[in-house]
Amino acid sequence: MSLIVKTITRLIVGLVLLFGIYIVLHGHLSPGGGFSGGVIVALSFVLMMLAFGEDVAVAKISRNLASNLESIGALMFLFIAILGFLGGSFFLNILSTGTPFKLFSAGTIILSNISIGIKVGIGLFAIFLALVILEKTKRER
């Protein structure tokens, strides 16, 4: 990619990542949530991959780590859901819901959002990576 793209990417990629994390964490207060935030997180990696080539992105998160983190995200979500059994019901919100409009409120919803954010962010990145690698092996052949 050209120098302009690389420079701009270097400047904004951190901001994009931060914005994604913000959306994930504020999912219970404002529009957004695990999925939308996760997509933005994944896009920051994709942006890096487009600007600097896949090797730089893979150096940050390898394929094995990506697939492991994806499973961990899913397992976390399931675990939070199963935790509801302690209170008597699947998916029950067992933590204290706190005061409304504060960041640490809404009980397990924020935890679920975080796990979905991990799952979606890494999952989308892994999908993109898989397609890129498929393309690359074809070109080499």
Binding site: S67, E70, S71, I72, A74, L75, L78, A81, I82, F90
Partner: peptide, 21 residues
């Protein structure tokens, strides 16, 4: 009645545990 959600939980747990380990 608690066995009803187990029909979904058990295979999902299996799937992601296998993917992880």
């Amino acid at each position: 009645v608690n066995i009803i959600p187990l029909f979904v939980i058990i295979p999902l747990l299996t799937a992601f545990l296998i993917a992880l380990l």
